[in-house]
């Protein structure tokens, strides 16, 4: 008999997690339940969906937002604070799957699955988010970039759960851009995604984060390209240097959805377009 636990609060969720590390923590189910028909019963499930402590968006000091791990894409889209402060995240959520997936899928689930093509992930990376995880032993806060360890691998112990994502306030006047290149216009798995955030000071790029999906084993920052742009004026010349640097730092692959040439070429085009838009 496969046990299905629906804890009433976070504390009992963490206890259940500690007691049954082999059980599947489940939020929206949009990853775990895919093609589950003939998979057989799991050892057990710990249901987190709708748990109030994980489903809220709250203010952080200074204008950032703390988004509960079980906040759905649909709730993110409905939140005007997210839309006005972090449009790159709203735009990303709007292009995840379609209505049915958005109603159920959660940011925490996207982060936990950590597919290299997870659509919210580049946005969170470009925004400099921090991941909050908890266990019966307490809470840890990890910069998202460090939380990503490898292909579908994150810094989460067997007794831990992701509880929230903290998104810091962005520089005033920062430009935020989201581009999803999918196999089709909606309900698609990405061939490539780019989230970019930058601001200028006196005509020079004073801060920039470019995050890309589907060009490596995990969502990555384009640090060499960023370095090539920092302190430069956004123009053709700096953009060209940046996309050359980009070619040296990402390792896109061929698969059934696209190929490495295309992914690299389009990533370069999108980065160039972003730089020239600044």
């Amino acid at each position: 008999m496969s046990e299905f636990i629906s804890p009433r609060n976070l504390a009992s969720s963490l206890e259940a997690r500690a007691k049954h590390p082999e059980y599947v923590p489940i939020a929206g189910g949009t990853d775990h339940m895919v093609a589950s028909k003939d998979r057989g019963a799991p050892a057990g499930m710990i249901n987190l969906f709708g748990l109030s402590e994980l489903s809220e968006v709250s203010e952080l000091e200074g204008g950032g937002l703390r988004i509960g791990a079980c906040v759905t894409y649909a709730r993110v889209l409905d939140d005007e604070r997210v839309a006005s402060r972090f449009p790159v995240l709203s735009s990303a959520c709007r292009e995840v799957g379609a209505s049915q997936i958005q109603a159920r899928g959660t940011l925490g689930g996207n982060i936990a699955t950590s597919s290299p093509v997870g659509d919210s992930l580049p946005a969170l990376l470009a925004l400099g988010a921090t991941i909050c995880v908890a266990s019966v032993d307490g809470e840890r806060r990890i910069p998202y970039e460090e939380f990503l360890l490898g292909y579908r691998k994150v810094d989460l112990a067997g007794n831990e759960l992701i509880v929230a994502i903290e998104v810091p306030v962005q520089h005033k006047g920062a430009v935020q851009t989201w581009r999803k290149v999918g196999t089709r216009r909606a309900q698609s798995i990405s061939k490539l995604t780019m989230a970019a955030v930058a601001h200028l000071d006196d005509g020079k790029i004073a801060g920039i984060r470019i995050a890309l999906g589907a060009v490596a084993d995990r969502t990555v920052r384009a640090k060499a390209a960023e370095a090539a742009l920092l302190g430069q004026s956004p123009n053709d010349e700096s953009a060209t240097r940046a996309i050359k640097a980009l070619a040296g730092e990402i390792v896109p692959i061929d698969d059934v959805r696209s190929n490495a040439d295309y992914r690299l070429g389009v990533a370069q085009n999108l980065v160039r377009r972003f730089v020239l838009s600044l």
């Binding site: 093609a35 379609a98 196999t183 089709r184 216009r185 909606a186 309900q187 798995i189 059934v256």
Partner: peptide, 27 residues
């Protein structure tokens, strides 16, 4: 523009609707 069946050594490699795509309302 979009639809394709990809064979790897005679086996359909994109045998799910995720990758063997057809147009949606938005396309």
């Amino acid at each position: 523009l979009w639809e394709d069946v990809i064979y790897h050594d005679g086996k359909v490699a994109n045998d799910r609707m995720t990758n063997c795509i057809v147009p949606t309302f938005s396309d």
